[in-house]
Every structure is written in C-alpha cells, then in structure tokens.
Amino acid sequence: MADTALTAPPRSPLAHAAGRLAAATRASGGAVRLAELPFLTQVNVRLDAKGPAADAVALALGLQLPLEPDTVVRAGELRALWLGPDEWLLVGPPGTRHELEGRVREAAGEEPVSVTDVSAQRTTLLVAGPRARDLLAHGCALDLHPRVFGPGRCAQTALGRTQVVLVSRDEARAGFWVLVRSSFAGYLTDWLLDAATEYV
C-alpha cells in the first residue's frame, strides 16, 4: 500500500481518545504525560541472527540488530527492538514503511528473511513524566526501576490485562513507549486513565 494518494486522512486507533489523554496530561501538572504517537512505521523482521543476512541487514539499516534479549538499538530515528532470538521490530517515523521494508529485503537477497509490515498492528502510547513508572507499576509486573529497566531496555509483557511491548526510551526523562495491539488500545487507554486518577 502506498503511503500517499489517500482520499481521506488516516485515522489512528486512539484518535477518539486524544482529548482525554491531553486532558489528563494537563490536569496532572506535569506528573504524567500521556499521548498516542500514531502511525509510527513498524516492520517485523525475522532472520537467523548468525546467518549472512544479519550483517547485510545491519549494514543496510545502519544499526546492529540487538542480540541481547529485551534491548533496543537506535540509529537516528530508527530503532530495532529485540522481540525474540530471530525476531526484531523496526520502528521508524511515519510514512517510511515501504522504504524500510525494501531496504531489508534488498539487503537480505536470497536469504530466507521474513519482513512484515505491522505498522497498523499496534499503536504507540507515550507514558512519560515523573510518575510514569508509578503509573505503569499499577499494572505491569516487571521491575521498572532504572537499575533494571533503564534506557535502552524493552520487554514484551502484560500491562493491565493486555499484552504490550514496553520500551524505556533512551533520552533523559523521556519515559516509556507502550506499543499495544490496536484492538486493545481503547481498553488500555481507559485503564491508564483510570490508574492515573491519583496523579491528575
């Protein structure tokens, strides 16, 4: 699918919740920041980490796919999240999925590499601010202390009753990304806003 030539502006899974997220952010007086980051490019890549394709893809992307479980490697606007020993999620700015998919496929050549556009499979929630960790701790069993889950860490886990990919962002005080399946995004937003009651 082309990123252009649309008859109607794209509508993100949480377009209907933008007002409530912004209101909670304002009411918290800086304690938490909640917002949807819609339309990020997300491409799922599966390849043999020890095979020749790994190096070729790394070269084409300008970043090494992380081999340490639950870590993120970043180069500019592009991030590679470890999802499994042969599985990564590339996350880039909106509108770059064709280009990204093409780069990986071309680099892989004849090697058995799977590349799947999953940009609409999940949307991304920004959870930031000084109380972001406390807010997530209401529903996430992982230890999110910076000693354990500091910048550059990611994890597939549960938040509330939903599966998420949690990313601790590498900029100082940038908080977390919560990547959530689009069909669960409305539920998770309701859950986050309810959990944030004491911080807003």
């Binding site: 509330g160 009753r161 399946r181 689009s182 069909s183 409305g186 998770l188």
Partner: peptide
C-alpha cells in the same frame, strides 16, 4: 482492585467500532 466493571476484561474493538 480496578479489575471490575468495564476494566474487568479487555474489550477489543475494530477500527469501525464507533
């Protein structure tokens, strides 16, 4: 806790739900 009422179980919706 908060696992009651509307939040007791996730509700999945499609892009056309509204």
């Amino acid at each position: 806790g908060r696992d009651r009422g509307a939040l007791s179980d996730p509700v999945r919706t499609t892009a056309l739900h509204e």
